[in-house]
């Protein structure tokens, strides 16, 4: 194995589900409030996937009380408790920036049919 891959290999996470752009996910991230730590859940559509290996990140978008909120997570980060895929959406590109211009039902993606 390449030395650089070896260096990060023990930090790569294998416990996460397969993610794809357009999926609706529920990300449980650890946040520090004052001096105590709690888990914050963020649910939304995977709008952007970037990078590979240890640097892989996803940007999750949701509309919360009429305001669009986007959060970027490093997928392999130890600060992420778990990621659940709620729904597979159909997306034909990795970056779904067009979702930013859409509101309501237009911002939803068709559900992907299982390949079975």
């Amino acid at each position: 194995m390449n030395v650089l891959d070896e260096v990060v290999s023990d930090q790569l996470r294998t416990d996460l589900p397969e993610l794809a752009s357009g999926d609706t996910v529920r990300v449980s991230a650890k946040v520090v409030e004052g001096n105590r730590e709690r888990i914050q859940v963020f649910e939304g559509t995977v709008m952007r996937m970037r990078g590979g290996g240890i640097t892989r990140s996803i940007t999750v978008r949701r509309v919360a009380s009429g305001v669009g909120v986007e959060r970027t997570f490093k997928v392999n980060s130890p600060r992420i408790e778990k990621i659940e895929v709620v729904r597979h959406g159909v997306a034909r590109r990795a970056q779904l920036y067009f979702l930013r211009d859409r509101v309501g039902k237009a911002a939803t993606l068709r559900e992907r049919r299982s390949r079975s």
Binding site: L4, V7, V8, Q11, I54, T55, K74, N76, S77, R79
Partner: peptide, 12 residues
């Protein structure tokens, strides 16, 4: 070469 790693506090 160069790469990125996570530190103990979770930052990269």
């Amino acid at each position: 070469g160069m790469t990125q790693v996570f530190q103990d506090d979770g930052t990269m």
